[in-house]
Simulated assay, not measured.
Amino acid sequence: MKLEWIKSSYSTSSGPDCVEVAIPNESHVLVRDSKTPDGPRLTVAPTAWATFLPYASRTR
């Protein structure tokens, strides 16, 4: 299965630090560093991801 990776809205095309997320099914959320697409991926439960998002989207 080919995953559809979505880049963080906080990432820019000129910025070196990008986070991407893929949701392969309803029980997993995958997170990776866009600089190393074949590198390690973090797998989290959707409930954990939903809990994390409000903290990640706070103004820097």
Rank of each mutant, 00 (worst) to 15 (best):
D38L: 07
T36F: 05
T59V: 15
T47A: 15
N25K: 09
L42P: 02
I23H: 07
S11K: 01
L30I: 11
I6N: 05
C18G: 03
R58H: 14
R60W: 10
W49R: 10
P16L: 04
D33W: 06
K2P: 11
P16N: 08
A48Y: 01
P46F: 08
A22E: 09
G15P: 03
S8D: 05
T43G: 09
T12R: 01
G15A: 11
P24W: 02
N25M: 10
P24R: 04
P16Q: 10
A22V: 13
P46C: 05
Y55Q: 12
Y10N: 03
V44R: 00
V21W: 02
W49E: 14
E4T: 12
L3V: 13
I23S: 09
K2I: 07
T43D: 12
L53P: 12
T59D: 13
V31H: 06
Y55E: 13
A45D: 12
S34Y: 11
L3D: 15
M1F: 04
T47N: 12
D33P: 04
P37D: 09
G15L: 08
L3F: 13
P16V: 10
P46K: 10
V19I: 14
T47Q: 12
V31C: 08
T43I: 12
P16F: 01
T43A: 14
S34E: 09
P40Y: 05
T47M: 11
W49K: 11
S57L: 14
M1Y: 05
P16E: 08
D33K: 05
S13M: 03
I23Q: 10
M1R: 10
S14F: 00
T12P: 00
P37E: 11
P40H: 09
R58I: 15
V44H: 00
F52I: 14
K2M: 03
S13I: 04
M1I: 09
A48W: 00
S9A: 10
A45K: 08
A50N: 10
V44T: 08
L30H: 06
H28G: 04
C18P: 01
P40A: 12
Y55V: 15
T59Y: 11
S34K: 10
R60T: 15
K2Y: 02
T59I: 15
A22W: 05
T36A: 06
K2G: 02
V21D: 04
L42H: 02
G39S: 01
T47S: 14
S11N: 01
R32T: 13
S9K: 05
S9F: 00
A56V: 14
H28P: 01
